[in-house]
């Protein structure tokens, strides 16, 4: 075991971790931040995406000890300070960007990274950026529309209604 200290969603936390403890295990099991999901555990699906020092990272493919001293953001830290959904989360709701919701935390974290690097991405750029995030409901069209809308761009054809 070794001691780690990191900032998670703005709060400093210190805990003892096993050498082989993944960051996603640390977040879910020690901190009970279960919004970060484990879909595949093989770094393919992206449901575990979080930000480490501002960069998109798969939390199943980094050890907790490697995040010692880092600033970590998870889906739980994404809402506005008053608890309302942030622009990306609201756009996912407005444009039916989620169906079962399992991939959504990773999608929202990936979208936030994309819009930080590229505030007005094209549809092609969005699809390319989401290469490491799998939606097994295959709800990609509305996810892409939600991210377009979150970036303040016109959404072609509007949302496909759930009913």
């Amino acid at each position: 075991m070794s001691d780690v200290t990191m900032t998670v969603n703005g709060k400093t936390v210190s805990r003892a971790v096993r050498g082989n403890e993944l960051l996603v295990e640390f977040l879910r099991e020690q901190l009970r931040l279960t919004g970060t999901h484990v879909g595949c555990d093989t770094s393919q699906c992206g449901a575990c995406c979080v930000h480490v020092n501002g960069e998109l990272v798969k939390a199943c493919t980094i050890f907790a000890a490697e995040a010692d001293g880092a600033e970590v953001s998870t889906i739980e830290g994404q809402a506005n300070p008053d608890g309302s959904l942030n622009v990306i989360q609201q756009a996912f709701q407005d444009h039916h960007g989620l169906q079962c919701g399992f991939c959504t935390p990773g999608m929202v974290m990936a979208a936030a990274s994309l819009l930080k690097e590229n505030p007005k991405p094209s549809e092609q750029e969005i699809r390319h950026y989401l290469q490491g995030n799998i939606c097994r409901c295959t709800g990609y069209h509305n996810i892409v529309r939600a991210i377009m809308a979150a970036s303040g761009q016109e959404v072609e054809g509007g949302a496909i209604a759930a009913e």
Binding site: S43, L56, A110, S113, L114, G132
Partner: peptide, 9 residues
């Protein structure tokens, strides 16, 4: 290489 999250590590 890989995807954006993989490229960051």
């Amino acid at each position: 290489i890989g995807d954006p999250a993989v490229r960051n590590r």
